[in-house]
Simulated scan of single mutants.
Amino acid sequence: MRRLLFLNGIKAFEAAARSGSFAAAGSELNVSAAAISRMVNLLEQRLGVVLFERKANRLALTAAGRAYQSGLTPIFDALSSLTAQIMAPSSMRVLTLGVGPTFAMKWLIPRLADFSTVEPDIEVRITTGGAAVPFGDDWSCGIRLGDGAWPGLVAEPLFAADLVPVCTPRLAATLKRPSDLKGPTLLRVSHAAEDWPLWLKTAGVTRVTARGTEFQYYGHALQAAIDGLGVAMGIRPYIDDDLAAGRLVAPFALTVPKGERWYLVYRSFQAGQRDFTAFRRWIMRAAAQSATRNSQRRDSIKKDATM
């Protein structure tokens, strides 16, 4: 027989552990902070275990509290997702994807028509995501650039994040070697200040510093490069379609690993849900196809560079 001890207390504890305070948990559950504190105290008494260390300005989980919360949060997430599915109209199949704006614009959206052909009954909803944005409660999955270590999430690699300078064919014709690059023409991305120094160091260029226009997103810098403003640091897979269409070219054969990868991220309970499974199967195949084309393109660039 299943034994559930004081479910309201369990909910109060999980919300407080996840949010870090009784006040935030109370706001989430529409009760007072004092009520949350009382329910957690009663839960601790019934369990015979201390879950929180009460400190002056914050709560700190004990070892038992951390273990309990790490198991409870996925259970409540799964329950929330299941409830949403049951409440949705039977004809509605929705997959919500958290993804950064440049990834959505430069890689995902141009390929969504193919997914719609394969799975016409699934509606994909795209919301702003990225490594700096918390994984949304309503997300089915997300796509993130990083090291793959996101607590509470499964992370499956999609792409290597390789760096390569890109520009218009006209500008590329003036660049015979990396030392021809000039700082004022090197377009920058504010949150990726390490990209140009990493590539230039690997290329053996020591007297060039990127001083070109700075943009908030890679997508803005790449569009500026397409418009002839300068040389942008391209990151795969953002540049795949622009290179294939000839809007941009890579004037040098050298590509440098950024030190991070792109991952499909999701909560473990999603693995058994059919719409997510369909999307996962599709994006894994699409990512593999992109990797094959990139490898062929790199081989072609290297061959042209040696001729």
Rank of each mutant, 00 (worst) to 15 (best):
A17E: 12
S140G: 03
F6L: 14
N41S: 15
A172W: 02
L61G: 05
A203H: 03
L61P: 05
L229H: 14
L248Q: 01
P110N: 01
L243K: 01
S27F: 15
T185M: 11
L108F: 03
A225W: 01
S19L: 14
L187V: 06
A291I: 10
A34S: 15
T83A: 10
L175M: 01
A12C: 03
I301V: 12
I143L: 04
S19D: 12
A60C: 14
E194Q: 15
G230Q: 06
F279K: 06
R285I: 12
L42M: 10
I239F: 03
F115S: 02
A193Q: 12
A173D: 03
T277W: 05
H220K: 13
Q69H: 09
W139P: 02
P169G: 05
D180A: 02
P237Y: 02
S190G: 08
A192L: 11
A12Y: 00
L42A: 12
L200A: 11
D242A: 13
E14I: 07
W139F: 04
T213K: 15
F52L: 00
L181Y: 03
G146Q: 00
T209H: 09
P251K: 01
L47E: 05
S91F: 07
V94E: 13
R211K: 14
K11D: 13
F103D: 04
L243S: 02
K176V: 10
C167R: 07
L29W: 06
L7T: 14
P101H: 04
A305H: 11
Y217K: 07
D77I: 02
E119M: 09
E28G: 06
A63F: 07
P120T: 03
T306N: 13
Y266W: 03
E123I: 15
E119K: 09
F6C: 13
A305I: 09
W196C: 01
S37G: 12
D121M: 13
A15M: 01
A225F: 05
D77W: 06
I86N: 05
D147I: 00
L187M: 05
P257H: 10
R211M: 14
C141L: 05
T128D: 15
M92L: 12
A232V: 07
W262V: 05
S70I: 11
T174E: 07
S179N: 09
F215H: 10
P134M: 04
R188W: 02
C167F: 06
L4I: 15
T62Y: 04
A221Q: 06
